[in-house]
Design a protein around this nucleic acid. Structure first.
Length: 677
RNA sequence: GCCCGGAUGGUGGAAUUGGUAGACACCCAGGACUUAAAAUCCUGUGUCCAUUGCGGACGUGCGGGUUCAAGUCCCGCUCCGGGUACCA
């Protein structure tokens, strides 16, 4: 079947290099790096005896060429049949057929089993001229490299296993391993048994061999990628149609003036009787001139690869995006999403954007400047243990006495791991006659952390929490749980703390009788410090997406202001603004109470002033031989010498000095003092 | 197997460039207020020793190292999570 493909491989190198310019997680970059799979090596031609052909192989280790004792080609290799000698023809045919009948799954599970077949053919070693037998084996993949390899059993574990199995010679060419025990695959060591590259190190040998191959015209340096071109056609109805028509069997692009090309009406969204895609059912699926239009449609990633550009200018009916819009918006500042798209959408979108950049549509090479993998909130599943073949359920700690089957049970009928047995009977008609073996009068459930999913019956509905604590508390609590990237099981222990904070915040603006009351008095330095410290920390934490520490700073601030009994507008008004991006509802309410007519969303985020935060005194922890012993306060801006003198004079220092003179005193300004004795 | 993350109190977690480990919370214990409860507030809370007052030792998965100083850097392990798999 003829298919459209996107030549993503043409961008392989740039997709790889671009990773260095974007702020994505290491793991995601690593997945893409492996997927692209760049490997540097050489392509080498081995002349086949009695044929006018040369077998091309790809290798990352041209330095080991003198250790090559056999060749292997993939069963699907185009020359398999051609080079096989009549003597081996039957066997090779049988092997090839057997290999092609094995499913992907079988090939994967049988990774460790060695199989192959000699073809009867030989190659000439390009340097020694020695004959090298050619085998066919399915551990060589047709789709990677050239579908043929030069096998170096001494330095490749797969070739080693193959050689051992078929009793082929193993020649060590890089010193450093023990080839009696296994192959030595490391890319370091000194070359031996290798003619003109003897005594060289691996890297030098690689360069030298490539040079020789190029001089002799039988090979060259080559970079190979694991990345494959992406099949871009689908034989279904729903998808963007290709603006392509056929004239004399040749495809032509439709003129831009004829776009957009819209899906035609069809009687059924099914293939035709002759197996053509659904679009072939349409009447008049042809150009004005009568040329037939392509009947395949595009896959889902056609749209998902560029929608972010379209969002910049969604109503434009002339082009994807206007120059003006793209120059304004440029790229996506922040993409929050899952790692599961690493080798699909996230790589296609990068590729499309690079292509659009090349033709002058996009203005940035990379579409997503920063990407954060939000951690998954997992579920905590509960289990009951059914005694096999009965409707009897046994409590968690007694399950060992029976032969049981764990069954997921709805977490909403389990409280503190204790099952509500009545609710369980009603939960599923299948269990209406359930009997229970209890421990201490209770049915205890087992538990496990799993993905939150309906099929595991561990889904919790936030509505109940919102009912009890409000949406702001839930929102704040989710942030407070830990770093954005962390996966963690959903656990409501701790939500009380956030709820208490909300109530404390409210109380700052209200009297004991819950009447709104703020003072117009001037703020004290301590109050200003509490506020400005908070504005600073929140500003920084937002930039770092460190929301858990931001919430904790709000708590600190509210605790401090409560201790200071502060209810001054000068403090509480900016505080509400800072809080509003975290707990919007309560902040808006307080904002209105403060007498503002406009919504808090239009209030500018306050700027902190360093002068309010700066201390008049610096606190120095003083340690002796690295152990903190006491603290000393020094006026801000004291010199190292002043700090040192003050420390040595301090009463507490005498105890630790024991009358001896210190060997050394280290003073780190604004940080610490360490006395070495 | 290979690659990438991670391991800090009973728990979730904090700790800019190496510079007071355990911020902020939860839990737990004790106390105040109350007829009572809820709510609120106060005190304690890494471990061990001492506890009459002070205080002291140990401590960031394990074993080494660098440094005046290591949760943070280096070397060697263990365990957990994720990715990937005959890629030559």
């Amino acid at each position: 079947m003829m298919q459209w493909s996107l030549r993503i491989t043409a961008y392989a190198d740039r997709l790889l290099q671009g990773l260095d310019t974007i702020e994505w997680s290491d793991s995601l970059k690593e997945i893409q790096k492996n997927w692209i799979g760049r490997s540097e090596g050489a392509t080498i031609f081995f002349k086949i005896k009695d044929h006018d052909l040369a077998l091309e192989v790809f290798t990352t280790r041209p330095d080991t060429i003198f250790g090559s004792t056999f060749m292997v080609i993939a069963p699907e290799h185009e020359w398999t049949e051609k080079i096989t000698t009549p003597e081996y023809s039957e066997k090779v045919k049988a092997y090839t057929i057997a290999a092609s009948n094995r499913t992907e799954r079988e090939r994967m599970t049988e990774v460790k089993t060695v199989s192959g077949q000699f073809t009867g053919a030989y190659c000439d070693h390009p340097f020694t001229g020695n004959p090298i037998p050619v085998y066919v084996a399915d551990y060589v993949l047709a789709g990677y490299g050239t579908g043929a390899i030069m096998a170096v059993p001494a330095h490749d574990s797969r070739d080693y296993a193959f050689a051992k199995h078929f009793g082929l010679p193993i020649v060590e060419v890089v010193a450093g391993g023990n080839i009696e025990e296994g192959s030595y695959d490391a890319k370091t060591g000194t070359l031996i048994n290798s003619d003109f590259i003897n005594d060289m190190q691996v890297n030098a040998a690689i360069t030298t061999v490539i040079q020789q191959l190029e001089d002799k015209g039988i090979g060259s340096k080559r970079i190979n990628f694991r990345l494959r071109d992406a099949i871009f056609s689908r034989q279904r109805y729903w998808g963007e149609p290709f603006p392509v028509y056929y004239k004399d069997g040749m495809p032509y692009m439709m003129d831009e003036s004829k776009l957009p090309l819209e899906l035609p009406e069809v009687d059924k969204y099914l293939p035709t009787e002759s197996g053509e895609p659904p679009l072939a059912r349409a009447n008049n699926w042809q150009t004005e001139e009568g040329y037939p239009i392509e009947t395949n449609t595009m896959p889902g990633f056609a749209g998902s690869s560029a929608y972010f550009l379209r969002y910049m200018d969604p109503k434009n009916d002339k082009e994807l995006v206007s120059r003006e819009a793209i120059e304004y918006w440029q790229d996506v500042d922040l993409y929050i999403g899952g790692a599961e798209h690493a080798t699909g959408h996230l790589i296609y979108a990068r590729f499309w954007n690079k292509f659009l950049y090349d033709i002058g549509v996009s203005v940035k090479e990379e579409p997503f400047k920063k990407l954060i993998n939000q951690g998954m909130i997992q579920g905590r599943s509960s289990f009951v243990y059914r005694v096999k073949g009965t409707s009897k359920f046994v409590s968690y700690n007694l399950r060992k006495d029976y032969e049981t089957m764990p069954i997921h049970v709805d977490v909403n009928i389990v409280h503190n791991d204790i099952l509500d047995t009545d609710a369980f009977k009603k939960w599923n008609p299948e269990y209406k006659d359930a009997e229970f073996v209890l421990e201490e009068g209770k049915y205890i459930c087992g538990w496990e952390v799993e993905k939150m999913s309906k099929s595991f019956h561990n889904v919790v509905n936030p509505d109940d929490l919102i009912q009890r604590y409000g949406a702001d508390t839930l929102r704040l609590y989710e942030m407070f749980l830990g770093p954005l990237e962390y996966a963690k099981p959903w656990d409501t222990n701790g939500i009380e703390g956030v709820f208490r904070f909300m109530k404390k915040l409210w109380r700052l603006y209200h009297t004991n009788n819950n009447a709104f009351e703020v003072s117009e008095e001037k703020a004290s330095p301590a109050e200003l410090k509490a506020l400005h410290k908070t504005i600073k920390k929140i500003s920084e934490d937002i930039e770092k997406f460190s929301f858990n520490t931001a919430v904790s700073q709000f708590m600190i601030c509210v605790n401090e202001l409560t201790d200071l009994k502060c209810n001054k507008r000068e403090i509480l008004s900016p505080l509400a603004t800072v809080v509003s991006s975290f707990a919007p509802h309560i902040a808006e309410e307080l904002w209105q109470q403060l007498g503002n007519k406009e919504s808090i969303v239009s209030a500018p985020f306050p700027q902190w002033k360093e002068e309010y935060i700066a201390d008049a005194m610096d606190m120095y922890p003083v340690s002796f031989n690295g152990k903190t012993r006491f603290k000393i306060e020094m006026p801000a801006g004291s010199t190292k010498e002043e700090v040192e003198a003050a420390v040595l004079k301090a009463d507490e220092a005498q105890k630790w000095l024991e009358g001896k003179a210190p060997k050394k005193v280290i003073v780190v300004p604004k940080k610490i003092v360490n006395v070495v004795i």
